[in-house]
């Protein structure tokens, strides 16, 4: 089994970092992983995205046209990537910044106001962490505790940020599980 997650948003929304934390968490659980960033001129103020591939066996192509899942933190990302997500994948939409939906009925759409939640928790900078918690809880791509552990380790030398990030993860999880899962058959 292999799944791929596209993280996309503005530069500065912590897109690359949340992708990295997911990859770390999956690696800790013994999965093969690859983290492929966008790089280049489009990064300057424009969109940033990265693809995380998680697999049970060694990863062949790191170039993925149709990811299993999408985390869209801003509107251009949703418009660009929602159409290519595989059927029954999770599409997490940051509804604080995106008023539209994915426009598909064959995916598990999860619209959450992650930026607002982050603001409520104390800093819009952790919107990516809220989204990550929600996504992982919903997709079960890795074990949630493993993710918590990874995020804790990521902030090991900035300890004062740990409680805030843990709260962000947990809040994301709670929200994701409150929303009725769409009636989508999941690949086993």
């Amino acid at each position: 089994m292999q799944s791929e997650v596209m993280f996309a948003g503005f530069g500065g929304q912590g897109i690359l970092l949340s992708g990295k934390m997911l990859a770390e968490a999956a690696m800790a659980k013994g999965f093969e992983v690859a983290w492929v960033p966008s790089y280049g001129p489009e990064m300057r103020g424009g969109t940033a995205y990265c693809m995380v591939v998680v697999s049970e066996k060694s990863i062949a192509s790191p170039i993925i046209q149709n990811p299993m899942h999408l985390i869209a933190m801003n509107r251009p990302s949703l418009e660009k990537f929602a159409p290519v997500v595989k059927p029954s994948g999770v599409v997490l939409i940051n509804s604080s910044l995106i008023s539209a939906g994915a426009g598909r009925d064959d995916i598990d759409e999860l619209a959450l106001p992650v930026t607002e939640i982050a603001r409520e928790l104390g800093s819009v900078k952790i919107a990516n962490i809220v989204a990550l918690g929600a996504f992982v809880a919903r997709s079960k791509i890795v074990d949630f505790e493993s993710l918590r552990k990874t995020v804790k380790e990521e902030f090991a030398d900035k300890e004062k940020f740990i409680p805030l990030n843990m709260a962000a993860l947990d809040r994301g999880k709670k929200m994701a599980l409150e929303v009725e899962p769409s009636n989508i058959p999941r690949p086993s």
Binding site: K20, A23, M27, V33, A34, W35, V36, Y39, I59, P62
Partner: peptide
């Protein structure tokens, strides 16, 4: 890609 990608 070899330079930019992260892998274990």
């Amino acid at each position: 890609l070899i330079g930019q990608m992260m892998e274990p």
